[in-house]
Design a protein around this nucleic acid. Structure first.
Length: 202
DNA sequence: CCGGGGATTATCT
DNA sequence: GATAATCCCCGGC
């Protein structure tokens, strides 16, 4: 019993709070009639303008990060290290480039398809562990950047599953060492003990 | 088990 | 030409 999150879910000012709320929600993609989905196990918040780790730090606006400035509830996809498709969710008002990086999911539907996309034959925890693998398993490519999450291609939904407060861990973000003091901000959220969480899952 | 480094290319300077 | 919000293998302990 899935209920798609409405666009106003994303249309709020506190991106860190939304990143925490996304833990336990279900992300679904449907390309060419094929559905793949997974429960979100790890997220990171990136804050517009003031956050040195964000692509939009200081108001930087280029053709790559243009979609960070789009309306809340838009997907922002970019390529990292020339090979990893990174899926982000844009929040806050249009022209305020807050975003949330989906770092890990727990596969639910379409596991066979995810294995094919990843070029694997056997399901293991590396399938959807880490942001690059999430994009690969869900079939996300940078062309999907700008997709609105109220449609049927990419969206986030919730079911009856409830996350208890003490199941959510908080830490500094990963892979943003070059951001100086901002690298220490507690903007990463994850499901404690979940095997799909990229690391430090205590 | 852990740490180091190579892969691989879009993007920005 | 350097860099990047990463991943995974491999060698060493």
């Amino acid at each position: 019993m899935l209920k798609k999150l409405p666009l106003h879910f994303y249309d709020r000012k506190d991106v860190v709070h939304i990143a925490r709320e996304l833990i336990g929600k279900i992300i679904v993609t449907k390309f060419g009639g094929i559905i793949t989905s997974g429960r979100i196990a790890e997220t990171e918040a990136y804050i517009a303008l003031t956050d040195k780790a964000s692509h939009s730090f200081g108001g930087r606006r280029t053709s790559r990060n243009e979609h960070m400035y789009a309306a809340p509830g838009t997907a922002y996809v970019y390529i990292c290290y020339g090979m990893h498709q990174m899926l982000n969710v844009v929040t806050n008002a249009k022209d305020i480039p807050d975003a949330i990086l989906i770092r890990a999911i727990e596969p639910i539907e379409g596991i066979e398809t995810m294995l094919q996309r990843a070029g694997k034959t056997k399901a293991d925890f590396t399938l959807t562990k880490g942001p690059g693998n999430v994009g690969k398993a869900l079939g996300i490519f940078k062309d999907h950047s700008g997709t609105i999450l109220s449609g049927d291609e990419i969206y986030i939904a919730e079911d009856r599953y409830k996350i208890k407060k003490d199941e959510i861990g908080v830490s500094a973000r990963i892979g943003v060492e070059s951001a100086g003091a901002d690298a220490l901000l507690p903007y990463r959220f994850y499901l404690r003990g979940n095997k799909y969480v990229s690391r430090n899952n205590k």
